[in-house]
């Protein structure tokens, strides 16, 4: 097999003035993973290259990094696959977590956010005589999130975390769902006030970056949406801005078939005058440019059907 060119991010905040990329030419073996290349370089070329690993088989979650822009596991990525779409392999550390050295990041906030969602069962009912049984269907509901290996790839990819460090981010929120939806605890320790608060479930943009990144197909965003549905169905989520947004949206579509875009922000931000003022100013500029008119909102013609559908879906529940 041919050689491959690797370009690897290097930075030691304690000694280096600025980050740099080192280029290496590496002899390839068949089936070689990116992690094996890093091991080869570490052993034979540059012993100062820093990265994490343990299992080498996509189980421990230590080796997450960015490979040609993709947030993923180095031990799960074949070099030959990467080279199918790019001439060289660029290896960089995870984003959204502080850098320690080269490809090693500080997972501190990853774990503190996990703690913040209280990821444990806290059964309030007295212990049963035997085991706490769970049906296959009940297990199904939390199976996906249970397979998380805490690698941080999703956190690195997260759009919101990039601009708001408060965001609990996909991994911790997926973990929260795993516990909130576990049938064995009548009340898991789930802190709904934290989940509904700033940086919680309503701050996710639904960009699906985390779904795309996760090497274990945990689909954290889907877990976040499930938490939202829980929060709306049974708990306090309805009075958050996010909850009001969803509720108004569904009501509007139910009423008219399509969303009443102009009424939506007015309804959701009612009472928040300063923010309303900003939006109204934008609205006036839009009107000036002929983008919006002042006429009534036009429902689609089959609105009756929509209303009946909603009623009928409710009945099915």
């Amino acid at each position: 097999m041919d050689d491959a060119i690797f370009q690897i991010y290097r930075y030691d905040p304690d000694g280096d003035r600025a980050p740099r990329y080192d280029r290496f030419r590496v002899p390839l073996r068949r089936g070689m993973t990116v992690l094996e290349v890093l091991l080869h370089l570490h052993q034979w070329v540059d012993g100062s290259l820093a990265f994490r690993l343990s299992c080498r088989s996509a189980v421990c979650g230590s080796c997450a990094m960015r490979i040609n822009g993709r947030h993923t596991l180095a031990c799960m990525t074949q070099v030959s696959e990467v080279l199918k779409t790019a001439p060289i392999v660029i290896v960089e550390p995870l984003e959204n977590l502080p850098l320690l050295k080269d490809l090693v990041v500080d997972m501190g906030t990853f774990w503190s956010k996990m703690d913040a969602v209280k990821p444990w069962q806290d059964p309030t009912a007295p212990s049963p005589e035997g085991e706490r049984l769970q049906s296959p269907m009940e297990l199904d509901r939390i199976e996906r999130e249970s397979t998380c290996i805490h690698c941080g790839a999703c956190v690195s990819s997260c759009t919101v975390l990039e601009v708001d460090p408060r965001f609990l981010a996909p991994a911790a929120l997926a973990k929260a769902k795993r516990h909130a939806c576990d049938s064995r605890a009548e009340s898991a320790g789930t802190p709904w006030d934290v989940l509904n608060g700033p940086g919680g479930i309503w701050d996710c943009t639904r960009c699906m970056e985390c779904v795309h990144a996760c090497p274990k197909d945990v689909r954290p965003m889907e877990a976040i949406l499930e938490l939202r549905r829980e929060a709306l169905a049974s708990l306090s989520g309805g009075e958050t801005v996010g909850g009001r947004h969803v509720r108004f949206f569904v009501e509007s579509v139910t009423r008219d078939g399509v969303l009443d875009e102009r009424a939506l922000p007015l309804q959701i931000l009612r009472g928040q005058w300063l923010r309303l003022f900003g939006l109204i100013r934008t609205g006036i500029r839009m009107w000036w440019r002929g983008k919006v008119t002042l006429g009534p909102h036009h429902p689609v013609r089959e609105v009756e059907t929509m209303r009946r559908i909603v009623a009928s879906v409710k009945e099915q529940r």
């Binding site: 639904r206 949406l225 939202r228 549905r229 709306l232 996010g242 947004h245 969803v246 509720r247 949206f249 569904v250 579509v253 078939g257 399509v258 969303l259 689609v300 013609r301 089959e302 059907t305 929509m306 559908i309 909603v310 879906v313 099915q316 529940r317």
Partner: peptide, 26 residues
């Protein structure tokens, strides 16, 4: 499609997936 409803736009999925699927199936 003048009579077609909203797709749910990713928003309605935060409330009810069956409803979203039914809108779209329509």
């Amino acid at each position: 499609l003048k009579k077609a409803p909203c797709t749910g736009a990713g928003v309605a999925a935060s409330q009810d997936l069956l409803l979203v699927d039914t809108y779209n199936a329509l």
